[in-house]
Simulated scan of single mutants.
Amino acid sequence: MTINNMYYPILRARQFELIALRELAENKKTQKFVTPILEPVRTSFNGLNIAHKILKQHKQFAYLIVNPEVGETGYGVSYLEYLKKLGDDRVYLPAFRYDPKIQNNIQQYNLNNCLLICDDDIDDEDTNFKELAKQGKVSKFGIYGTNRNRSLVRYLKSLQKPCIRIDDLFKKEQRNSDYLEIDAHKFSEEHLYFNDEGFNGFSDYTVIPSEYNETGSMPRAVVIHLTYLKENEQIWIRHFTSTTNDSQANVQGKFAEAAKKAVDFCKSEGLNNLAIQELTDIFNKHHYPGLGVNKKIAIKNHILVVAKYLGSKS
């Protein structure tokens, strides 16, 4: 099995992130260009099981990081057992963050087509790492900090295996209300230049901060983060933010304020896709869907923006 898609969004495999992927797969929007990378943060497999059933039905593959670094999970034995139980016809493929213990796991569970995720502080002279990177069961690399560890990138490219650059693009503000003062700005150009720089794909955390936060509280402000393509094919982002942010009360009203700004902007700019249609429908019905759906819409929109661009170039 060979996965040659170009965009590899990293998601934490929480409820609304998995729902976003399910809905995209059901609508046949991502299979040709997108392979998500899931880093689970829950010990329950219920969400992953539901998503796997739907993704398999629609032939949408995804990588599952079996040794996640954050959340409730520990080292990846439970996720290795989980992949084993799914069988050989699963659509979840094994991905690892580099750890010297990985080699034993790959052999023990007879894994193939593994994605090895490499942090920018890995020493490319580490013999354990080099032995792992060279073995045939590792078929692809995801590389953080491609401008900070050029020797690592050069070494991995020399192995003639696909390399994906991983970038942390979303700048998180301390408070949601801080986005009110931020104008639209450039979000990404990686989709334009990854191939020119010798990479086979690119990855980001969509419009979610890479820094994981387990706890959450009722926000004083509601923000809808939407990316879109400019005429020069750069991806830009706007943060549509509520204005009555003096207390935590009336989240429904805050969502309506942010949604009106977003819907009006998309209409004026002629922006439309499944995510924008969903947001528009919610706004027109004066419905408050909850902050999880808000995040789902933002994730779906960004993946659709990237997929549309890649589709236009295929």
Results as ranks from 00 to 15, higher is better:
residue 167 D to C: 10
residue 62 A to T: 02
residue 44 S to N: 14
residue 255 F to H: 10
residue 243 T to F: 13
residue 73 T to R: 09
residue 299 I to R: 00
residue 190 E to T: 13
residue 123 D to Y: 05
residue 139 S to D: 09
residue 27 N to K: 00
residue 273 N to G: 03
residue 124 D to S: 15
residue 18 L to V: 12
residue 6 M to L: 13
residue 310 L to N: 02
residue 199 F to G: 09
residue 49 N to P: 10
residue 110 N to V: 11
residue 127 T to C: 07
residue 244 T to D: 13
residue 68 P to Y: 06
residue 72 E to C: 05
residue 205 Y to T: 09
residue 16 F to A: 04
residue 79 Y to T: 06
residue 187 F to S: 03
residue 185 H to T: 00
residue 97 R to D: 05
residue 170 F to Y: 15
residue 116 L to P: 01
residue 51 A to S: 07
residue 103 Q to H: 07
residue 164 I to Q: 01
residue 71 G to Q: 07
residue 71 G to E: 08
residue 139 S to P: 12
residue 86 L to Q: 11
residue 160 Q to F: 13
residue 161 K to D: 13
residue 259 A to N: 05
residue 53 K to S: 09
residue 157 K to F: 03
residue 273 N to Q: 06
residue 295 K to T: 01
residue 156 L to D: 05
residue 235 I to D: 02
residue 273 N to H: 02
residue 237 I to H: 04
residue 171 K to L: 15
residue 70 V to N: 03
residue 260 K to V: 14
residue 75 Y to L: 11
residue 62 A to N: 03
residue 50 I to H: 11
residue 167 D to F: 14
residue 245 N to I: 14
residue 220 R to S: 11
residue 175 R to W: 15
residue 80 L to M: 13
residue 230 K to T: 13
residue 49 N to V: 07
residue 158 S to T: 04
residue 203 S to I: 06
residue 79 Y to N: 14
residue 146 T to I: 14
residue 232 N to D: 00
residue 252 Q to W: 08
residue 94 P to R: 05
residue 92 Y to H: 03
residue 135 Q to T: 03
residue 284 N to V: 10
residue 219 P to D: 03
residue 1 M to I: 11
residue 18 L to Q: 14
residue 11 L to V: 00
residue 299 I to L: 01
residue 127 T to Q: 12
residue 258 A to G: 02
residue 297 I to K: 00
residue 40 P to N: 08
residue 135 Q to I: 03
residue 200 N to G: 14
residue 184 A to I: 13
residue 16 F to Q: 07
residue 134 K to P: 06
residue 306 V to C: 10
residue 260 K to T: 14
residue 43 T to Y: 10
residue 84 K to I: 02
residue 260 K to D: 15
residue 94 P to M: 03
residue 136 G to P: 10
residue 154 R to C: 10
residue 154 R to I: 11
residue 80 L to R: 08
residue 201 G to T: 11
residue 62 A to V: 02
residue 314 S to A: 15
residue 215 T to K: 13
residue 106 I to F: 06
residue 266 C to Q: 09
residue 299 I to D: 00
residue 198 G to H: 13
residue 164 I to H: 01
residue 179 Y to K: 14
residue 41 V to Q: 09
residue 79 Y to P: 12
residue 74 G to C: 03
residue 280 T to H: 06
residue 271 L to T: 02
residue 71 G to H: 07
residue 310 L to Y: 04
residue 48 L to D: 01
residue 183 D to M: 11
residue 70 V to I: 06
residue 253 G to Y: 03
residue 218 M to S: 07
residue 285 K to V: 13
residue 268 S to Q: 13
residue 98 Y to P: 07
residue 293 V to P: 01
residue 228 Y to V: 00
residue 165 R to D: 02
residue 77 V to A: 07
residue 294 N to P: 04
residue 259 A to R: 01
residue 271 L to H: 04
residue 4 N to Y: 13
residue 78 S to T: 07
residue 70 V to W: 00
residue 160 Q to G: 07
residue 264 D to T: 10
residue 10 I to N: 00
residue 283 F to Y: 15
residue 46 N to R: 10
residue 134 K to S: 09
residue 286 H to L: 09
residue 194 F to R: 14
residue 155 Y to S: 08
residue 277 Q to Y: 07
residue 121 D to A: 04
residue 104 N to E: 12
residue 266 C to G: 12
residue 56 K to I: 00
residue 83 L to Q: 10
residue 123 D to C: 05
residue 85 K to R: 11
residue 236 W to E: 08
residue 78 S to C: 05
residue 40 P to G: 07
residue 171 K to H: 14
residue 257 E to C: 06
residue 224 I to Y: 02
residue 274 L to G: 06
